[in-house]
């Protein structure tokens, strides 16, 4: 019986590892070819580069063509600022929506909940017109737009969490003379740490990878984010797979590193977002 169990465990491990490699293989193929010249890529995609054909020049070339520092900086700033605004303003809103048990709170929360159904294509065209009129088609404007789009899911998640936070501490703080702002930032906020991480992870992943909104709003030289620049890069160099493979690997690297560093939080955040959202 023991022997049979060990056998099963062994077979499952082999199958699992094989599948893991298979899942990873598209990226391995990409990585392999990013060290070859265009001629050698067309000669044989599957061959490994030999000592003579191994090159690293694709990377600096792609780095330059992607304006990597600039695009990465744009993506980074936009993602960090948007997520920061979402965390502060959505937790504030969710808190009062839970604590003020009025009809108004209920109506506003229902609006957020039903808005999760609205597909982006439905608001896209009037949004472009409206943002143009408000002079918001720039990077700070985009950050504010992300606050609006991220509000639904973030407030729902905060709302669900705050409902289970006991109100006694807040009441004590009020009795001690804290005003509303102090109560929230000094007493409530520190208790929201776990849900903050979840909301932050979900928003970072979505905003970092978002393509269509930046394409519509800030598609101007110098403002482009990484996904936007990758798309343009492909339009320009569609058959230049030597640059393209290196460029793709470079663009994937930040998110893969992010995943390796906070895998546990990401897994928890994504699961919670799916189940409760």
């Amino acid at each position: 019986m023991r022997k049979r169990q060990r056998m099963i465990s062994f077979v499952l491990t082999v199958i699992g590892l094989f599948l893991a490699v298979a899942f990873f293989s598209p990226i391995l193929v990409l990585l392999n070819n990013s060290f070859k010249s265009l001629k050698n890529i067309y000669l044989d995609v599957l061959a490994f580069p030999t000592a003579e054909t191994f090159i690293t020049t694709n990377y600096p070339d792609a780095f330059e063509k992607l304006e990597f520092v600039k695009s990465f900086g744009n993506s980074f700033m936009i993602t960090v600022c948007s997520t920061g605004l979402i965390l502060v303003f959505c937790s504030m809103a969710a808190w009062v929506l839970v604590r003020y048990k009025t009809k108004k709170s209920k109506v506003i929360f229902m609006m957020y909940a039903s808005a999760t159904l609205i597909p982006f294509q439905c608001v896209m065209l009037p949004l472009v017109r409206l943002m143009d009129k408000l002079h918001m088609m720039n990077r700070p404007g985009l950050v504010l737009m992300y606050l609006g789009f991220g509000a639904s899911l973030s407030i729902i998640l905060f709302h669900g969490f705050i409902k289970n936070v006991p109100v006694e501490l807040e009441e004590a703080a009020r009795l001690d003379g804290c005003n509303m702002v102090q109560t929230f930032f000094l007493v409530v906020l520190p208790m929201l740490k776990t849900i903050m991480v979840t909301v932050a992870i979900l928003n970072v992943m979505w905003i970092w990878n978002d393509f269509l909104l930046p394409q519509l709003m800030i598609n101007k030289p110098g403002w482009q984010t990484l996904p936007l620049k990758t798309f343009l890069f492909f339009g320009q160099f569609s058959k230049k797979w030597d640059l393209a493979t290196a460029g793709l690997i470079m663009c994937m690297l930040p998110i893969i590193l992010f995943y390796i560093v906070c895998q546990k939080h990401i897994v928890k955040g994504v699961t919670e977002g799916a189940v409760k959202g």
Binding site: S9, L12, G16, I255, Y259
Partner: peptide
Amino acid sequence: SKAKGTTLMRGAFFMPNLIGGILLGFT
């Protein structure tokens, strides 16, 4: 299951989900 190295497997299976759709399409 009782297989070994499941953390590594989870990482590999979930990873495509983190990468943006534009990058995945070109890949």
